[in-house]
């Protein structure tokens, strides 16, 4: 077997030391640090980018919160304005209604008083008319003139009785 020929050992080992030594030096000195640098640089870059993204996200979250707050404020403001307006209008309506009620009550009162007065006048006139009619009827029945005062009292009594009976 050629592998166990001792004369070939020394050249192989010497050249292995030379070539592997050169490979190690090249790799350790120049090639591998380059790869390591790139990998590290990329890692840093990715970490930075992630950080940046995180920051932006925080910012957008803050903006969103501010927007939400503004919206809530506006909504509250609008509600307040609406309530105020509603209260104002309600008060206005109430006041106008009260005024109207008062005016109507006044008018009703006046009308009622007028009606009462008219009824009284009418009743008085009715009594006068009844006295006149009564006097005339007495004249026709007995031929002589009746005492005015007695007629008046009689009519008054009759009216009173009628009213009591009615009432």
């Amino acid at each position: 077997m050629p592998q166990f020929d001792p004369t070939t050992f020394s050249p192989q080992i010497i050249w292995l030391i030379i070539t592997f030594g050169i490979l190690y030096l090249v790799m350790a000195r120049s090639a591998l640090p380059k790869v390591g640098n790139i990998l590290q640089e990329r890692e840093i870059r990715i970490a930075e980018d992630l950080e940046q993204a995180e920051k932006l996200r925080e910012e957008s979250r803050a903006v969103e919160a501010a927007y939400e707050k503004a919206l809530a404020d506006a909504r509250a403001e609008a509600g307040k304005v609406l309530n105020d307006a509603r209260a104002e209008i309600t008060a206005d309506i109430d006041a106008q209604k009260a005024a109207l009620d008062a005016r109507l009550a006044e008018k009703t009162g006046a009308a009622q008083a007028e009606i009462k007065a008219a009824i009284e006048t009418a009743l008085k006139e009715l009594e006068t008319v009844a006295q006149d009619a009564c006097a005339a009827i007495v004249v026709k029945l007995i031929g002589n003139k009746a005492d005015g005062k007695k007629v008046a009292a009689a009519v008054h009594n009759a009216t009173e009785n009628a009213n009591a009976g009615n009432g």
């Binding site: 192989q12 010497i14 050249w15 090249v26 090639a31």
Partner: peptide, 23 residues
Amino acid sequence: LDAAFTNSSTFMVIIVLSVWFFV
């Protein structure tokens, strides 16, 4: 010392060059 350049040495050199080229 016997440091003859053999076919084995040739391929060692080729290996080192290939690795260096690859990287």
